[in-house]
Amino acid sequence: MGYPKDLLSSRSIIKHGLYALIAPEGLVNNVIPGFENCTISVLGSPKLGASFVDYVVTMHKGGKNSEGFCGQENVESFVYVLGGKVKATAAGKEYILEESGYLYCPPGTKMYLENFVEEDSRLFLYKQKYRPLEGRKPWAISGHANNIEFRDYDDMHNVHIKDLLPTDLDFDMNFHILSFDPAASHPFIETHVQEHGAYLLSGEGMYNLDNEWIPVKKGDYIFMGPYVHQAAYAVGREPLAYVYSKDCNRDPEL
């Protein structure tokens, strides 16, 4: 980066336990054992107030995790390819994932990742403790978001959503992509028990977080804690879209 050319400033906003906007300009490299030839930044984590961990990973030429990611009996994982092409391996099965490709690994399954091109590949990576439910068990799922049709969100023709995982009680979380046409918005400001970790895939907008309107754009990361007000307006010339996690299908614990 070299010496600064202006006053030091940042768009990032951190409200521990409530919400966070993390702009890509301020990210630093975190050393995560097992990842080789990779630049990794930890985004959401329990230190921020999240019940999960999100990472953004740039796999350089020859980048890989030969030791495997996760694999603990009570931890599930998910990877979404932001750009490039990777080979993912889980439970002895290989998956070739290009941009918009993803893989969910159930608890007890290690995910091995390897860059499959000469150029950089970029990933949005997630892990969370799984909450078991008697008689239910999740399974490995891979797909490409671009092959899934959008449906209208809350009966609005200019806001669209797609589910990346089954809406099934076997799963205690899901990943979705939400997309707003220019000038579209949520139908109301949401307040709910679920928390989210969201990576902005395209566009620009204004996001309401804890009743503060904050400008956001492609490449930003947003953490939304439980019961924090949240809603978005899309601005600009292209859709505002983001991929995000949501805890679901479980009764809150006492």
Rank of each mutant, 00 (worst) to 15 (best):
E212H: 13
A183I: 08
F180T: 00
F180H: 09
D170P: 01
L165Y: 05
K129Y: 14
N146G: 09
H160T: 03
A184F: 07
K129I: 14
A183R: 13
D172A: 09
L133W: 01
G205A: 07
E195V: 04
Y130G: 00
T191I: 15
D152M: 09
D172N: 14
P215W: 08
L200N: 02
S179H: 03
D163V: 01
E204S: 14
V193W: 15
A183Q: 14
A183H: 12
F188E: 11
N147D: 13
L178W: 02
H176K: 13
S142Q: 06
K127T: 06
K162S: 04
K218D: 07
D172Q: 05
G197F: 01
L125C: 10
Y130L: 05
T167L: 15
T167H: 12
M173H: 14
M173K: 09
Y207N: 02
V216D: 01
V159G: 00
M173F: 15
N174P: 02
K127L: 11
N211C: 10
Y130K: 07
K137S: 15
R122M: 09
D170C: 10
L164S: 02
S202P: 03
M206H: 08
Y153S: 05
R136W: 10
Y207M: 14
P187Q: 05
Y130W: 12
E134T: 13
W139A: 12
I214M: 05
K127E: 12
S202C: 06
I141E: 08
L165K: 00
P215T: 07
Y221V: 02
Q194C: 11
H192A: 10
E195I: 04
Y126C: 03
